[in-house]
Design a protein around this nucleic acid. Structure first.
Length: 932
RNA sequence: ACGGAUGUGGCGGAAUUGGUAGACGCGCUAGACUUAGGAUCUAGUACCGUAAGGUGUGGGGGUUCGAGUCCCUUCAUCCGUACCA
């Protein structure tokens, strides 16, 4: 028996099948499959950014999960599409270009090649013929094209749809903009049809820009003079750039923006029916942040005609308003500061502006602020309310000004406490003012003139009536969601298909000029005066000589619509043909990380709606079903550098120093001790660093965090595959725990799945040899084991509960291997069940038992419920909820009979001795509980 | 700070819908086979206790005949917070 049992040499087997699959793939005729009337399944994976360090084990989790599901769907007869592509524009390749001069496209190509190898080596059955690369002109041509659609559209609030800009021009020609219901900039000037028709082309364009879905506006950005560029919040640490340590200021810059707020309500409403994790829906809901309230205008004392408009969600508390607070960015704040040359105020505004929003919001005990030196008049009482400038009010939300109601708002309360301001309660409550604010929206109004005695809800209604009547307030729905800034001062992104005429206004290139190729540049850095890298291109202008836009699009541009392109990736006429869309009908299942909950997933929904409105596609939601894969976590290593010095302090000594934590590669750490030599050669920053040691060692700090290149804690898969094989790694990553949960990386568990695979191998070969000549029918016990497993595995795959699917395969194998002999039909079923999880081994075993059919297309086993029925059930018999014994009863035993038998049981008798039975609960097929 | 999630043996985790907590795997202990074992097989393994028994799902409280599961409260950890992808 031992003689012909080959051993399981996974390297050879995996290579063999990967090659064979590739050959099979190339002869698949998709058009034929499409034409046949078989059901389709479009699986979508969040595509990766191809970074230089390659894939890490965390990336595989979602891909393996989708591969399992897809292999299953193929087994049950679906035409499956599971494409993979690359979100290839991004900062790392650009940084690399700045450092080495190598063009980012070369770096990107190299990285992509590595990624493809890494994806192939684990047996992922991707449809590479459908792949996309967002940085290729053939792809970004359409990203630019979609941008032009946004530029050439406006949002009609009456129909709740985007519409071509031409319809707006027609409207202006007939009625001016007095009647039009449109999403537009604040303070858009009013004009009549007559005026419109006399406007110059320049004036018309300027007016239209207030309405376009893609428009220019002043955005506040993190400007770093030293690097000549804008930085992400994460690149800014305590007001200094992470790279180089240059000061960073917040500065207004003209930027492209997308009018996403116009879609806020639809993004909110349409979220409801989506089959998404509830937590993700909740996060998007909170991100959109709809709040209903009022805008109320306050007259400024002694300033004729000047008013300050605040947004409040609690207009009924207006009599409790004790002060007005402006964001430091509020135009009136700096105006007043300048006018009065108020040094304190000017400097406060400056510093406050440069604090990060998170910092500003994180303050809990003391809120900073400065009195503006003016007051507004309370519209009902006529009392003067002081105007303050404070950074706990943010410019981007509401009107950038609030009325402070300290008695009923936590932040306002803290602010009032910080400056000893008056606090006036207007809702009756048992909470004393000294104990904090009363924030509930229930109770009876007090100290509120005409609102006294009303409930909060009644008061809200009444006060709105009054405010509207007096024309000082109106209902207002406000969203936390902002129009996202869409331009970047970068090189490696999509250029804007926009040029500027002498009038300084943006004009669109015509679609036939697309793609607008990224130009060659002499340097990838922004130039000294802060002109973006595209400024370094020669002849960056239209054929007529008009200068082209110097910005590029952000990383999320290409990823906002790639799921559409997958359906028709090679079409040069359109980004997605009507026929292909009609066949695939969009994504069936999307698997990706929860960390994109409010970014990518929201942007993609927004773009989809725009394209749907304009009639280019016919789906309103891109991802009807969404699953998250959890992060793989791994220990990070943290070194502590003295502020402003290139000296690193060992972890035990940091209490005595002012240090900045920095990630270092976990690879250089052994039991908390850092290999300083390795560190010094790793990065120039460390080359001549000094180290303050403890007991001769440099000890680093550490945390469990998500595996990520930027934290230098990734585990690369090659070595694991070489040691255990791709099937083992697949199985292990799925066996680790529930798909959606974060899991710490720990290699020791892989031994278990590796043993399992070896056991499967021996089992099949043993069965094969024992039964080569005969074909005995399986007995009842085997059938029961098998059908139980088929059911469990099938249901688990459908629930994406792969860890339990694998464990039931293990249980099944343990049961089967304890049997003397097992017929081949049982072995066949087992191989089929294993196939989605460990496809290389399954294919090899399939062949080894003499099968010539393509395993991937063999129908999945189906269980028969009749085989699973049990005749009896083992009841747990509990006394007062504690299980004391177990008894077996037939399914048709009556509750009365069970109760009687249970009470008569010897063990139970012992527990009942001397007590009276109060109650007996018999739950059929569950348990018995006797209460004494 | 805000929003979201997670917390069960030494470890990863399992547990239909409120009904026998700890499936499956790692690790560990003992044994078998073996020249050998980082192979394989067998048995055991939540904790305390010699036992009878008791205690156990981050902590505290509640609902219930019965709670890992439902409610309240609290703590810890992780993810996101708009130019990282």
């Amino acid at each position: 028996m031992q003689l012909d049992m080959q051993s399981y040499i996974f390297t050879a087997i995996e290579q063999k099948w990967q090659n064979r699959w590739k050959a099979q793939k190339s002869i698949i005729d998709r058009n034929l499959l499409t034409a046949k009337n078989i059901p389709k399944y479009y699986m979508l994976n969040m595509f990766p950014y191809p970074s230089g360090s390659g894939l890490h084990v965390g990336h595989y989790v979602g891909y393996i999960a989708s591969d399992i599901v897809c292999r299953y769907y193929k087994h049950i007869g679906y035409h499956v599409m599971n494409p993979m592509g690359f979100d290839a524009f991004g900062l790392p390749a650009e940084q690399h270009a700045i450092q080495t001069g190598q063009h980012p496209s070369i770096t990107t190509q190299k990285n992509i090649a590595k990624y493809i190898t890494q994806l192939d080596q684990i047996g992922l059955d991707f449809d590479w013929d459908q792949s996309v690369n967002t940085s290729e002109p053939a792809y970004y041509k359409w990203t630019q094209w979609i941008f032009l659609q946004m530029f050439n559209s406006w949002y009609h609030t009456a129909t709740q749809k985007a519409s071509p800009i031409k319809t707006l021009i027609d409207e202006f020609a007939c009625h001016g903009n007095t009647k039009v219901e449109a999403a537009c900039d604040d303070h858009t000037p009013i004009f009549s049809a007559q005026e419109w028709n006399t406007f110059s082309e320049t004036e018309k364009q300027a007016k239209l820009l207030h309405y376009r879905l893609a428009y220019l506006r002043d955005s506040i950005v993190n400007w770093c003079e030293g690097l000549g560029t804008v930085l992400a919040n994460e690149e800014v640490k305590d007001g200094f750039s992470e790279r180089g340590g240059y000061p960073v200021t917040r500065k207004k810059m003209k930027q492209w923006s997308l009018r996403m707020t116009a879609y806020a309500q639809r993004l909110l409403t349409d979220l409801e029916p989506l089959d998404w994790p509830l937590s993700t829906k909740e996060m998007q809901r909170n991100w959109i942040g709809k709040s209903q309230g009022a805008e109320i205008s306050f007259r400024v004392q002694g300033e004729r005609g000047k008013t300050i408009t605040v947004f409040t969600t609690r207009p009924e508390t207006i009599f409790g308003a004790c002060f007005i607070v402006l964001a430091p960015e509020h135009p009136w704040a700096s105006f007043m500061a300048q006018q009065r040359s108020d040094v304190e105020l000017i400097s406060y505004i400056e510093t406050a502006k440069n604090r990060s929003e998170r910092n500003r919001l994180a303050e809990t005990t003391f809120l900073s602020g400065v009195f503006l030196g003016a007051c507004v008049i309370h519209p009902f009482t006529g009392a003067p309310l002081p105007i303050w400038v404070a950074d706990y009010v943010l410019p981007g939300y509401g009107t950038g000004a609030i009325m402070g109601v300290p008695a009923h708002d936590k932040r306002d309360y803290t602010f009032a406490q910080s400056f000893d301001l008056l606090t006036l309660p207007v809702i009756e409550s048992t909470i004393l003012i000294e104990d904090g604010p009363y924030e509930l929206t229930e109770g009876t109004m007090i100290n509120s003139d005409f609102l006294n005695g009303l409930s909060v809800a009644e008061a809200a209604e009444k006060v709105m009536e009054k405010l509207t009547q007096k024309r000082i307030g109106k209902y207002k729905v406000n969203y936390r969601l902002q129009d996202p800034t869409f331009s970047r001062q970068r090189y490696w992104g999509e250029p804007f298909p926009i040029y500027y005429k002498e009038d300084g206004l943006p004009y669109a290139l015509s679609p036939n000029q697309l793609p607008l190729l990224l130009p060659a540049v002499s340097s990838y850095k922004p130039n000294q005066s802060g002109v973006p890298p595209l400024g370094n291109a020669s002849n960056w202008s239209t054929p007529e000589g008009y200068p082209l836009d110097l910005h590029t699009m952000p990383g999320w541009a290409g990823s906002s619509w790639y799921f559409l392109r997958y359906m028709d990736p090679h079409n040069q006429e359109t980004f997605l043909s009507r026929e292909k869309e009609a066949y695939w009908k969009g994504v069936d299942c999307y698997i990706g990380g929860a960390e994109h909950a409010t970014g990518h997933l929201l942007y993609a929904r927004f773009w989809t709606k725009v394209l749907d409105d304009l009639g280019y596609i016919h789906i309103s939601e891109p991802f009807p079903k969404l699953l998250h894969q959890g992060l793989i976590q791994q220990v990070t290593a943290i070194a502590y550098r003295l502020k402003d010095k290139n000296i690193f302090v060992s972890a035990g000594l940091i209490a005595e120093h002012d240090v900045v934590p920095m990630y270092i590669p976990i690879a250089f750490v052994e039991k908390g001790v850092v290999d300083i030599k390795a560190l010094k050669t790793w990065h120039p920053d460390f080359a001549d660093a000094r180290f303050l040691l403890e007991e001769g060692k440099y000890i680093c700090g550490g945390k469990m965090e998500k595996m990520s290149k930027s934290k230098y804690n990734v585990v690369e898969p090659e070595q694991i595959i070489a040691q255990y094989g791709a099937d083992a790694l697949r199985l292990y990553l799925m066996f680790l725990g529930p798909l959606e949960q974060s899991k710490p990386w720990d290699l020791s568990g892989i031994e278990g799945v590796s043993r399992f695979l070896n056991k499967v191998w021996r089992f099949v070969h043993h069965a094969k040899n024992a039964y080569a000549a005969t074909a005995l029918p399986p007995n009842e016990a085997m059938i029961k084991i098998m059908h139980k497993t088929i059911k469990k595995v099938t249901e688990s795959i459908k629930k994406c509960s792969f860890n339990t699917a694998i464990s039931s395969l293990m249980i099944c194998l343990n049961n089967l291997s304890s049997l003397e002999t097992v017929p081949l039909s049982i072995v066949e079923d087992f191989i089929l069940l294993l196939d989605p999880f460990a496809p290389h081994m399954a294919a090899e075993l399939w062949e080894s038992i003499g099968k010539t059919s393509n395993l991937a297309e063999v129908p999945f086993p189906v269980w028969n419920e009749a085989y699973l029925e049990e005749k009896s059930f083992e009841y747990a018999i509990a006394v007062n909820g504690k299980v004391r014994t177990k008894m077996v009863f037939d399914h048709d035993a009556s509750p009365m009979a069970i109760e009687k038998a249970a009470l008569a049981n010897q063990v139970i008798q012992k527990w009942l001795a001397g007590k009276s039975t109060k109650n007996v609960v018999v739950v059929p097929k569950k348990m018995v509980n006797i209460v004494v």
